[in-house]
């Protein structure tokens, strides 16, 4: 009895996380779909490490899935990081650029 209740409450809390301000149902559906999509996306990306070694990919897969579920919902953070704020875009551009240069220069 209590366990179902807590589960229900947990689920409700989780859903409430999506809604800020006036909650429109169609926004909520978008957020939930986006959350699941993002989860699947990073799971698939973690599978990519099979190119280096298969056990590594399995460990990463488990860890990343666990982390993503633990920190859920992450879609709000994803949205925040993809805001059109100039400094944020500049920050991400510098990071990407540094990664590209680091990979190509010292990876090869």
């Amino acid at each position: 009895m209590t366990s179902t209740e807590t589960f229900y409450e947990k689920l409700k809390k989780w859903l409430d996380n999506f809604i800020t301000g006036s909650g429109y149902t169609n926004i909520t559906t978008g957020y939930i779909t986006g959350e699941l999509q993002f989860l699947v996306f990073i799971i698939i990306l973690s599978v990519f490490f099979r190119l280096f070694s298969v056990p590594l990919a399995i460990i990463l897969l488990i860890f990343i899935t666990a982390f993503a579920l633990y920190f859920a919902p992450v879609i709000k953070d994803v949205e925040k990081e993809n805001m059109n704020d100039l400094n944020r875009v500049l920050y991400w551009m510098v990071i990407y650029f540094a990664i590209i240069i680091a990979i190509t220069l010292w990876g090869g």
């Binding site: 169609n26 926004i27 978008g30 957020y31 999509q37 994803v78 993809n82």
Partner: peptide
Amino acid sequence: MMIGVIMALIQI
């Protein structure tokens, strides 16, 4: 591909 489509999902 992924970020674009996820951001499209949450637009109003």
